[in-house]
Nucleic acid binder design. Structure first.
Length: 374
DNA sequence: AGAACAGATCCCAGTGGAGG
DNA sequence: CCTCCACTGGGATCTGTTCT
């Protein structure tokens, strides 16, 4: 165990006067505390001139310097934030930079601070309103650390997990690209099977006459059909009398004609039945068209192109049922539709699975940080 | 200087009434 | 029964002010 002051050179920066505008007209990185969000920081929002650095005796910190935020630590998003530089930089007075003098690597300190920074901000920062840390406070902290060899292993291990997380993100991104590419191919206009949506769907407007259903649903742009009670928690937006609400069943579609966008036509899958506000346009497919197949069509660029064309020029972005019916669609045989759906739903399942793996790896990293640093 | 704070404004997902 | 239109509460975001 050793103290921070013994192990590290501490340094806090400065802000060149903004009265002199050309001090901020330069190419030297100048880090403010708000930019310390990611593990590594390479570029800064503001840059200063060489003259400004000289006038304010701002040190140019080398690559690999560990920097933390020391002002305004009463805020959740500021407390515990830190980064490591990947380019030479100067810093403002709201930042504190650490340079190793002896036995502790900056990357090791980074992981140590990731674990303890939050508590340090709460327990040790001073000030009545704005909670700040200072040189005197920071230099007295004790840090437990293993030998250099072991530090390197720990750092290597954590960076492997970070790489794994980055790879996982890439896998998910690629699978999503693949899915939309397949949709583009399957749903692009073809000379054969020329048909219109109107020929394969029927509008439904059965009402909740005697108020016997109470599963009030909304159609959200992002999440599709959702329970209204969950969306608005303690607020009841539905009218007291829902007898005019439309009844929808599983596999029915609904959309708000005034809020048309890609993904805003939803298919009911989570519930067997429910009711929606009378302003929604609801419809279901005829036997010749699979609901799953139509749902994927609504994700295609081809469909997007058609609604854009219909919305062009009008002040209100409104898609009536008639206009929807006029949109051309390729409708192959039911067998072929089933194939397309099977293919794409397998892919969707795969994406779900990869997302779960990502979550798991992230949890693993949090857990390890907690276990490894004293 | 820059964070918190406060107020203004926009956006979203709705309501309800008028009128065709 | 459908469309249009004015309106709404709450959250997100933008903008200007206050505070340390």
């Amino acid at each position: 165990m050793s103290s921070i002051g013994e192990q590290f050179e501490l340094y806090s920066g400065n802000t060149p006067s903004r009265m002199n505008k050309n001090q901020f007209d330069g190419s030297i990185n100048w880090i403010t505390s708000g930019e310390l969000k990611e593990h590594y920081i390479s570029d800064t929002k503001e840059k200063i001139s060489e003259e400004a650095a000289k006038n304010n005796s701002l040190k140019l910190l080398p690559v690999g310097t560990f920097v933390i935020a020391i002002y305004g630590l009463e805020a959740n998003g500021v407390r515990g934030t830190c980064s490591i530089t990947t380019r030479e930089s100067t810093i403002s007075q709201a930042c504190m930079a650490f340079t190793s003098k002896m036995d502790i690597q900056n990357e090791f300190l980074y992981s140590w601070y990731k674990k303890h920074g939050n508590i340090i901000g709460i327990k040790y920062a001073q000030g009545t309103k704005q909670q700040n840390l200072s040189y005197d406070i920071i230099e007295r902290f004790n840090i437990s650390y293993p030998c250099m060899e072991e530090q390197k292993k720990l750092i290597r291990f954590i960076s492997l997990i970070d790489q794994r997380i980055a790879t996982q993100n890439k896998i998910i991104e690629d699978l999503k690209k693949l899915k939309s590419a397949i949709i583009e191919i399957e749903y692009s206009p073809k000379d054969s099977y020329h048909s219109h949506i109107g020929g394969a769907i029927v509008q439904i407007s059965k009402r909740n006459k005697d108020n016997h259903l109470c599963n009030v649903l909304s159609v959200s742009n992002r999440q599709g059909f959702i329970k209204q009670s969950e969306q608005f928690e303690d607020r009841n937006v539905a009218s007291d009398d829902t007898s005019n609400y439309k009844i929808v069943e599983k596999n029915d579609f609904a959309y708000n004609p005034a809020r048309i966008n890609v993904g805003s036509i939803a298919r009911l899958t989570k519930f067997e039945t429910g009711i929606v506000s009378p302003m929604y346009i609801c419809f279901r497919t005829k036997d010749c068209l699979l609901p799953e197949y139509l749902e994927l069509f609504f994700e295609s660029r081809n469909f997007f192109y058609h609604i854009q064309k219909r919305l062009e020029g009008s002040v209100r972005l409104c898609l009536s049922y008639e206009e929807l019916c006029n949109i051309p669609i390729v409708i192959p045989s039911i067998e072929k539709q089933k194939q397309v759906d099977l293919h794409l739903s397998k892919l969707a399942q795969k994406i779900d699975l990869e997302m779960k793996i990502l979550q798991f790896v992230q949890q693993q990293k949090t857990y390890l940080l907690h276990q490894m640093f004293i």
